[in-house]
């Protein structure tokens, strides 16, 4: 499944489109612990988190994460948005909480035959 298809299907807010909405997703990961994401998330996954500070952009960029989804209707902090632009990272948002949006992402990816990992 492509990132832009997921955005459309789940009606995600696009704060920053990043540099590749056409990329094919490899799965998803939900965590608020940065080293956990560093250790276990895989490239081309979407990452669901409530962390809203510049270090999430560094993590996403270094791990080649496809997109970050901020939960609970949070707006990205100004410096987070600026850093996302600089690094070409796709920054998305949802009103949902981590559990619900992760379930939605999982269902969408499964319908398209992309596993959870």
């Amino acid at each position: 499944m492509k990132l832009k298809e997921l955005i459309e299907q789940l009606n995600l807010t696009v704060f920053e489109p990043g540099n590749n909405l056409d990329r094919t997703l490899s799965g998803g990961y939900a965590s608020d612990l940065l080293s956990d994401v560093m250790g276990y998330a895989k490239h081309d996954m979407v990452w669901v988190t409530l962390q809203n500070h510049v270090n999430i952009i560094a993590v996403a960029s270094l791990k080649d994460i496809a997109a970050i989804i901020l939960v609970h209707g949070q707006e990205p902090a100004r410096d987070v948005l600026d850093r996302a632009k600089e690094e070409g990272i796709t920054l998305l948002g949802t009103e949902s909480d981590t559990f619900r949006i992760s379930a939605d992402v999982y269902m969408s990816l499964n319908q398209h035959g992309t596993g959870s990992r």
């Binding site: 608020d32 612990l33 940065l34 080293s35 250790g39 962390q51």
Partner: peptide, 15 residues
């Protein structure tokens, strides 16, 4: 609070 401190950084380096 920022999401650091999981105690996984050094193990990640090892891996």
């Amino acid at each position: 609070e920022m999401g650091f401190g999981a105690g996984m950084g050094l193990p990640n380096i090892k891996d």
